[in-house]
Nucleic acid binder design. Structure first.
Lengths: 349, 349
DNA sequence: TGTTAGCACTCTCCTTAATCGAGTGCTAAA
DNA sequence: TTTAGCACTCGATTAAGGAGAGTGCTAACA
């Protein structure tokens, strides 16, 4: 899609229409525009310009005798050319939020807390993906005995994610065996990239282990299952915040649309698809049709990447109608993703 | 509220009205009733009976010239007197579900699986509370070292719930100290009722510990926090399934009502209040006004208790409009709560 | 040549009125 | 005690008639 250079007056008019539409959620006419914004020209002139902007694809007309609304292309131009992406939220916000959450040390808690925070700030639905397992290393693996024939397997990654699973056995293991197992597994698995701990590697480890000590095969099968979950590329959990905010948007006045949207947000795979369709850039905006997922082609996404010690690990963002308060949302997402990176880096030590 | 004995014809008519209303979701008139059900009397007679039933409080009239709808009292009579609470679902269901889920060994997975299952069966929103910590014992407490100054605290209850928390310290602990700590904590805390592990007791343990070994006070403060969460009576997590089913109910055709309901289900405390307001009986039904929580006085709850090895630990149930398919829902809740008890007892071994 | 005033025209939204139909309560007869 | 008949009620649906906001076009103007 070509991006023409617009003359200054067209720019001003486009910007005014978009800002007005973001507030009012309805088509904007030439008279309203002339009255509210000091454009120093008459409504008739504005009408001519609006017709031009429509021809260029920046505006749309719901029906002949209505005002104009921005098209996806219009929003794109607005976001790229007409607003400044300044990071400076009201000063103090950063410190406040950081203080508020600084005693959270559980990565999962931090993530869901930030999802809530972001949705509260923006009044749109927030989504945060868990740290990707692909790029994380297994920091700790430990088995502990719960009862005669039940064990607890604990896995901790260097991104701070903790997984645990109860394993029931058909035989009981001696304390000695367990501590041997722990030592063995530590050696073989810890500090390895999760991506490398695939079935092949695990099979090898199993072979080696069984050669050294007499154990039920069952145990290892259960290991597989637990690891598999961490492998699936689309299997990362996505945290939501403020789901009900979408109900406040006038574009979801229709019950059918609400239904569709809520069903969408219920499906974890969908969320994964949505958030993973965002490329690796620092702060990415997808407007309407630009989205790959069919069902959100009338929505916009503002998504940032967050980091653990400079390593890109997850995404945090906001989903709302294309008529979104981009400047405010962008700066909120920016700020919160920074805070998330900071908190999560600290927590995963 | 008095429960009169109704004559057989009134019973039949009340039952017919309720059944018809459950299907159609709209007021039922005398003509419809006479046509669809073989009541062997004319509409006029039915009208007289309906007027009587309204006087007795079993029916209501939305406006003068409409049919009748059941009142809360009417539903109550229906549930108590007019339907049989038989447990026998289509045979085979139990086995199927059990097989489907039998390899789940994680208690949290089982719970959320059963919530989904129940909501799929009933097409209403399902809610399941986690096993109460009050009645559970701490089965295992263990600290493991993740890095120089970060530890992982793992708590496992005999109800199979696993909690973990990362603890960051300002000092590093030697391996010897950690293993001493583990032994000490095991002795002092394991096999105790969680309800008894209150601040007082923990303070004592702390004193004793500090007398024996030189440790940062900080560590124990973090312990408190983790335990506190398990203490709060209202702090049990509630799992939901099929939230979007409420959108399919015609009584939630109004966007405002949907909004209210979804906001309600977003608040964990509310869910706790709702599910905890149900007394300890085996299978309890709350109809409309019978509910204590204001915002669901137009809803009905069907809630059963589930058990771990014969010990009542949690609730599982369904929330929907008062116009609910009680017979089907009751038998579903009954069956699923049994299965949940069985699975969870096995998993927490 | 770009800008503006004026005007006829269009299309949605809101209100009002009219009609339809399901259902009731009452009366009187069987 | 039951039933047929009938006038009446009230919500829901449809139709019609502005009101209002906005446009595009033409012609005049700086």
């Amino acid at each position: 899609m070509m991006v023409e250079e617009l003359d200054p007056r067209k720019k001003r008019i486009l910007q005014a229409i978009i800002q007005e539409h973001i507030i009012s959620a309805s088509p904007i006419g030439s008279r309203t525009l002339a009255k509210k914004y000091n454009l120093d020209v008459s409504p008739a002139t504005i009408r001519n310009e609006m017709a031009d902007l429509e021809d260029l694809g920046y505006l749309e007309q719901p029906h002949t005798s209505a005002g104009r609304i921005p098209s996806d292309k219009g929003y794109r131009y607005y976001v790229d050319q007409l607003i400044s992406r300044k990071k400076n939220e009201a000063p103090g916000v950063i410190e406040n939020v950081e203080n508020l959450y600084q005693d959270l040390q559980d990565v999962q808690d931090i993530i869901s807390g930030m999802a809530k925070m972001l949705s509260n700030m923006t009044h749109y639905t927030a989504m945060v993906s868990e740290p990707k397992s692909q790029v994380s290393r297994l920091k700790k693996v430990e088995i502990m005995q719960l009862a005669d024939n039940s064990l607890l397997l604990v896995l901790v990654t260097d991104t701070g994610m903790v997984n645990n699973k109860i394993i029931n056995l058909d035989q009981s293991l001696s304390t000695a065996k367990i501590s041997y197992l722990n030592k063995f597994l530590s050696e073989k698995l810890e500090n390895k990239l999760l991506a490398n701990l695939d079935t092949n590697y695990l099979k090898e480890v199993e072979k080696e282990l069984l050669a050294k000590v007499d154990l039920s095969v069952d145990l290892f099968k259960q290991f597989y299952n637990e690891f598999e979950g961490a492998f699936e590329p689309g299997g990362v959990k996505v945290y939501l915040g403020g789901t009900s905010y979408i109900l406040e948007q006038p574009e979801f006045n229709d019950l059918e649309k609400v239904k569709k949207m809520l069903k969408l947000l219920d499906q974890e795979e969908m969320l994964n698809k949505i958030i993973n369709s965002i490329s690796g850039s620092d702060l990415e905006i997808k407007i309407g049709q630009e989205n790959e997922v069919e069902d959100i082609k009338n929505c916009s996404l503002v998504v940032a990447t967050y980091y653990i010690s400079e390593r890109a690990v997850g995404k945090i963002g906001v989903i709302g109608p294309t008529r979104m308060e981009y400047p405010r949302v962008i700066s909120s997402v920016d700020v919160i993703s920074d805070i998330l990176s900071k908190l999560i880096s600290k927590a995963s030590g």
